[in-house]
Amino acid sequence: MSIQHFRVALIPFFAAFCLPVFAHPETLVKVKDAEDQLGARVGYIELDLNSGKILESFRPEERFPMMSTFKVLLCGAVLSRVDAGQEQLGRRIHYSQNDLVEYSPVTEKHLTDGMTVRELCSAAITMSDNTAANLLLTTIGGPKELTAFLHNMGDHVTRLDRWEPELNEAIPNDERDTTMPAAMATTLRKLLTGELLTLASRQQLIDWMEADKVAGPLLRSALPAGWFIADKSGAGERGSRGIIAALGPDGKPSRIVVIYTTGSQATMDERNRQIAEIGASLIKHW
């Protein structure tokens, strides 16, 4: 067993022997301040990774656009098919120029040779490549099948209805392509620590998230040296922004954090800054 596999296998073990965790309302004060600064709703939840206990939450059962955070769930569904012998990570998928959609920095470079399922998941999570996500959605049967996968996990809230990039439209009061912070946090925890996926697939999923290259201005910008984070960000229309993450000190994750916002007129930089400040408060009061 590799060191990384050992780390993920012992996530519940280490967490069980940690000192009790206590909620700190100071972080919620910052979440509410972010709402004021952005002029928009902000949803927040913080779960203990081992027990699933909610440590703090704000608007945990209000719907927010998922945006690209759905790509972690998508690759979880792909990995479940791999575990069941219905898919192979090494299978190569070929596609054409007509398949390319807006923001496809990886797939646009491989029109000639195609990409493997493993490479597509890596591109979808680490670079948020939209064509990679659409190609992977095709392998599982489309958005409705991802929703069905989530329902089978016990998540009857999260739903995907459309493809990239239309799913980022974020129309107010439109339930399409949305989740709730509580539902997303619980589902992410199941994917990373539950028995739904094999140990190898859980490790692969967290490795992809740990290698995320496009979430630097968010929670990662607030992390002290030595902290662990595996995350996936999302951005959408109407001032929408979000991030889902597993993080913790001492090089291992111990909490799940989900943050979503929508309806702001603020710039992307300002949305990023507010999420980073929430992260800084979380870490300060850990």
Rank of each mutant, 00 (worst) to 15 (best):
L192W: 08
S254W: 09
T107K: 01
E195G: 14
A15E: 04
F64S: 01
P105L: 06
L136T: 04
M209S: 02
T187Q: 05
L247W: 07
H156W: 11
R63Q: 09
S80T: 12
L282C: 11
T187K: 01
Y95T: 03
L79G: 02
V101C: 10
A170M: 07
L205E: 02
Q88W: 12
E56P: 01
I283G: 04
T116I: 06
W208Q: 03
A123N: 04
M153I: 13
V21W: 05
R7K: 10
G142M: 02
W208R: 01
K284P: 03
G39V: 10
K213F: 10
F22C: 14
M67V: 10
S57Q: 12
L247M: 15
A34H: 03
K53V: 13
R220A: 04
H110K: 12
D129C: 01
L282D: 01
A124I: 05
L47E: 06
G39W: 08
L120M: 11
F14N: 02
M115I: 07
I54T: 12
Q37G: 10
F6R: 09
A124D: 01
V42C: 08
R7E: 08
D250R: 13
A15H: 08
N152F: 11
G76L: 05
L136V: 08
K109S: 14
I93R: 03
I171N: 15
L89R: 03
Q37D: 15
G85I: 04
F22R: 10
G226H: 11
P60V: 12
H94W: 13
L120T: 04
P217R: 09
E108F: 08
R220F: 03
L247R: 01
L55H: 08
R176V: 06
E35T: 03
V101D: 12
E210S: 10
R189Y: 15
Q37E: 14
E164H: 01
L55T: 08
L282V: 13
N168K: 02
Q37A: 15
G141F: 04
N168H: 05
F6N: 10
C18I: 01
I140H: 04
F14G: 07
S104C: 07
F17W: 10
K213M: 14
D155Y: 01
A15N: 06
E46F: 09
A40C: 08
D250Q: 15
E119R: 05
V8H: 14
F22T: 06
E35I: 03
D99M: 12
H151Q: 13
Q86A: 14
F70T: 06
N173W: 15
L150Q: 05
I93K: 04
P165M: 07
E277H: 08
E61Y: 14
L247H: 01
A23R: 05
M66T: 06
N272W: 01
N130F: 00
R255P: 00
I244G: 02
I3M: 08
L55M: 15
G242V: 01
S201Y: 05
Q86R: 12
G52I: 03
I54C: 09
R92I: 14
R91S: 07
E175K: 12
L120H: 03
D36L: 15
R91I: 04
P60L: 10
K213S: 11
M184A: 07
S128T: 01
V31R: 01
K32S: 12
A170D: 08
E270V: 12
D161E: 08
H151N: 13
F70Y: 05
Q4H: 14
L282Y: 03
P224V: 04
V214Q: 07
P12A: 13
L160Y: 02
T131N: 04
M115T: 05
A16Q: 12
L192V: 10
A34I: 10
T198P: 07
F70H: 07
L120G: 02
G43K: 00
R273V: 10
L282K: 02
A211F: 09
T116A: 07
G226D: 11
F58D: 02
Y103V: 05
V258D: 01
L218Q: 03
A9Q: 08
T131A: 10
K252Y: 12
Q37R: 13
R189C: 12
A170Y: 12
K232T: 01
A182W: 13
D174M: 04
R176T: 07
N173T: 12
A77C: 14
H24I: 10
G242F: 00
K30V: 11
V29N: 15
R41E: 07
S96L: 13
A225P: 15
P224A: 05
D33I: 14
G90L: 10
Y103K: 02
A16T: 11
C121K: 00
G234M: 05
V106M: 12
K109R: 14
M209N: 00
I125M: 11
S128L: 00
L10P: 08
G263A: 08
G52T: 05
F228S: 07
L146Q: 04
S104A: 08
L146E: 02
A132V: 00
L282M: 14
E102L: 10
S264I: 04
N134K: 04
T178M: 03
W227H: 02
G251D: 11
L38Q: 06
I259G: 01
F14V: 11
G76A: 14
S264K: 05
P25N: 09
I229P: 00
A84Q: 13
N173E: 14
R41V: 09
V78K: 02
R92D: 06
M268H: 09
G236A: 09
L74G: 02
V29S: 10
I93T: 05
I125D: 01
A133D: 00
G216A: 11
N173F: 13
V31M: 08
V78D: 01
K53H: 13
D36S: 13
L10F: 09
I140E: 04
A40Q: 09
G154I: 02
Q88L: 12
G236R: 01
I93W: 03
A200I: 11
T138Y: 12
I275K: 00
E108R: 11
L120N: 02
H24T: 15
V72L: 05
F64L: 02
I275T: 03
L167Q: 04
G279V: 05
N134I: 04
Y103W: 15
F6A: 07
M1F: 02
T179H: 00
E61A: 12
N152L: 11
M180P: 03
G76C: 06
R273G: 14
I171D: 13
Y44N: 00
E145N: 15
L10K: 05
W208E: 03
I259L: 10
M115D: 01
L219A: 03
L49H: 05
M153L: 14
S254F: 08
K284D: 14
K30E: 07
A211N: 14
V106D: 07
T262P: 01
E26K: 12
C121A: 08
V42A: 06
G236S: 07
N134M: 04
F58L: 11
R255K: 12
D212R: 04
T262G: 05
D83H: 04
D36Y: 13
T116M: 06
L188F: 13
F149L: 08
N272K: 02
L73A: 11
G141W: 03
R63L: 09
H5L: 09
L55Q: 08
I275N: 01
L89F: 08
D269M: 11
S201K: 07
P60N: 09
I140G: 04
E61T: 13
I283N: 03
V258N: 02
V42Y: 06
L137G: 04
E210L: 08
P143V: 07
K252W: 09
D207Y: 14
D231V: 04
M66Y: 04
D269W: 10
W208H: 03
A124V: 08
F58W: 14
S96N: 14
Q203I: 11
V106L: 14
A40E: 05
Y260K: 00
L19F: 15
E56L: 08
G76F: 04
T198A: 11
E87N: 05
I11H: 05
T139G: 10
S233I: 00
V106R: 07
L38P: 07
P105C: 04
N152H: 15
L146Y: 06
A246G: 06
Q4Y: 13
T193R: 15
L150W: 06
L205G: 00
Q88G: 10
E166G: 12
S122Y: 14
L74R: 00
A34N: 03
R159V: 07
G52Q: 06
Y44A: 02
R162Q: 08
P20E: 12
A16K: 06
D177N: 04
G239S: 05
R241C: 04
N98P: 09
K53E: 12
I275P: 00
D99W: 07
P224N: 06
G248H: 03
F64C: 02
